[in-house]
């Protein structure tokens, strides 16, 4: 055992900057994924057959292949195909955004379909138009079903974001590797960023729990 954390002290600011890179990446990918995922979910529950199929095939492709493969395709294969020199950050956003859209669309679809069918019938019987019913009655209830699974997806995305280090985005993970090769010591920087990942996930889970508790108000008397 020759652990010496004092050696990484000068590198701490450099590694902490990685938090910002990772967070920026997660937030943008998640926004992109949520918007596309909601759209796909609506395609899936709708009655327009071609849209059903598009959403189903899309989900099947992005859930059926490794994320790292999708990442490599966007970073290495697209420039070869189009000649456009894509930045690592953009390639990463595209791969992660499109990938999480597939998962999020399933989460949202399941959440909407889990709302009791009687709710739709009650709203329709009162003469509420379909769109209005979706917005006021179905989606607020679906959101409660969706939230835990969506929080899970956010946490997964945060951790999986470390994959972008393979295409030299300077995120937390990549920075730990840089420090490691600089010092010829891997354990300390890896442990350090490991702690940061854990802390980020811890905070995210806590936020999720608070929101969930707020939404539960109507469940109790």
């Amino acid at each position: 055992m020759n652990l010496d954390f004092s050696q990484i002290t000068p590198y701490i600011p450099f590694m902490l900057e990685g938090i910002w890179v990772t967070l920026k990446f997660v937030v943008v990918a998640l926004l992109f994924g949520s918007i596309l995922g909601t759209l796909l979910a609506l395609f899936k529950i709708g009655t327009v057959k071609p849209l059903n199929w598009i959403a189903i095939v899309y989900t099947s492709i992005f859930r059926g292949t490794p994320l790292i493969l999708q990442l490599m395709i966007f970073y290495f294969a697209i420039p070869q195909l189009t000649g456009y020199d894509i930045s690592p950050f953009l390639a990463a956003i595209l791969a992660f955004g499109l990938n999480s859209a597939a998962y999020i669309s399933e989460i949202i679809r399941a959440g909407i379909q889990a709302v009791d069918k009687g709710q739709t019938e009650a709203a329709l019987a009162l003469g509420v138009p379909y769109r209005q019913m979706m917005i006021d009655i179905i989606l607020p209830q679906a959101f409660k079903n969706i939230l835990p699974a969506l929080m899970n997806e956010v946490i997964t995305l945060t951790k999986e974001s470390a994959l972008v280090s393979t295409i030299s985005v300077l995120d937390l993970m990549r920075r730990a590797q840089v420090v490691g090769s600089d010092l010829y010591r891997s354990f300390e920087p890896l442990l350090f960023v490991g702690f940061i990942y854990w802390a980020m996930v811890f905070v995210l889970s806590a936020i999720g729990k608070v929101i969930e508790r707020r939404l539960k108000v109507s469940d109790q008397s």
Partner: peptide, 30 residues
């Protein structure tokens, strides 16, 4: 349908709205 009220076996009240809101929702929105 606005002229035809319906009452269901399993009530189907809107669980995320209060009793008063359950009553005012459709008249206001529809």
């Amino acid at each position: 349908r606005q002229q035809i009220g319906m009452v269901f076996q399993h009530f189907h009240l809107f669980p995320h709205l209060t009793v008063l809101e359950n009553l005012t929702y459709a008249p206001m929105k529809a």
